[in-house]
Amino acid sequence: MAEALVLLTEVFLVAVGLLLVTLVWRRVALGRGERRVREAERRVRPVAIALVEGEGGETTGLSAREQAVLADVLGRYARKLTGDADARIGAYFHDAHALRSALRELHARRMWRRATAAYRLGDMCCPDEATQPLLAALDDSRREVRAAAARSLGRLRVVSAALPIVEALVQRRVPNGIAGQALLELGTDARPELGRIAGHEDPSVRATAITLLGLVGDSGDSHIAGAALRDPSADVRRAAAEALGRIGTFSDEGALRAALDDRMHFVRAEAAATLGVIDAPEALPRLVEIARTDRFRPARAAARAVARIDPKLLTSVAAAPDAGPHLHEAADLLAV
């Protein structure tokens, strides 16, 4: 027993020693690695800038590490700039090792490698080469990879990805926020697709499609949102009211005013807010009533809507004794 314990103690001491050594080595290696990257970036950045700005940029003399760092820097510029930069960055990556390497890594065994590759492809501005592989990656077994693929397809503005991304969204294979953002980047190109999906059988799909139409669409799409004001699902109705507010103009005020009587308070709230945005004086009496008597959210939205449409009216109704807290708040905010 005693020898076993002595041995045990020695083992632990050795382990402690090893840990110490690993710690120091790791830290030193990390520090050195970071320093090297920083220096490489300093050297490489002028090249990247010249490239991005279309003024040459000598890339042949760079070492392998510098090429890798250059790829990272260019990826950052792809994210931070718009305009001609994308085309120039794409031209660089077209022949670059980084692109081929990323395409290969999409089939790596480890999840994080695939996800990182999918992500990087989005910043290389080479949609021709990357589209098919990324679309395939939308079906990856791991969520993180799918999310990165969706994000990259959005960044590359691949219009044909609209439907697959929406399907992934609907089947909850990609997080809402990421899919939504990707569709947003597809922008107006995604509108026809979104219009089609606004009639999908799953209410959450309809709701998402309409939310997105609100963000990327314009007055031409308001009829779709308007129709959705009468959707059987409350979530869709709310999304419709919100989308109309974002679009900003809507011809059928009557439908919105009808939504002020919706069963669900959050639909009423959204309808009230939107009526304020599109400036609908005919809704004022009902809005004032809601502001006085309804639940918190719709009442507040209604009070603010009244403030937007007719500030003078707000001031006078807020002075009444039974005006209620929301009208008071809205009136005070007006005065600020």
């Binding site: 950045r45 002028p46 800038i49 010249a50 991005v52 700005e53 003024e55 820097v73 950052r76 510029y77 931070k80 700039l81």
Partner: peptide, 15 residues
């Protein structure tokens, strides 16, 4: 504070 942007803006405007 973003070094990338600063360098780029300086380059473009100096040019």
């Amino acid at each position: 504070d973003d070094e990338d942007i600063l360098a780029l803006v300086a380059f473009r405007l100096e040019r």
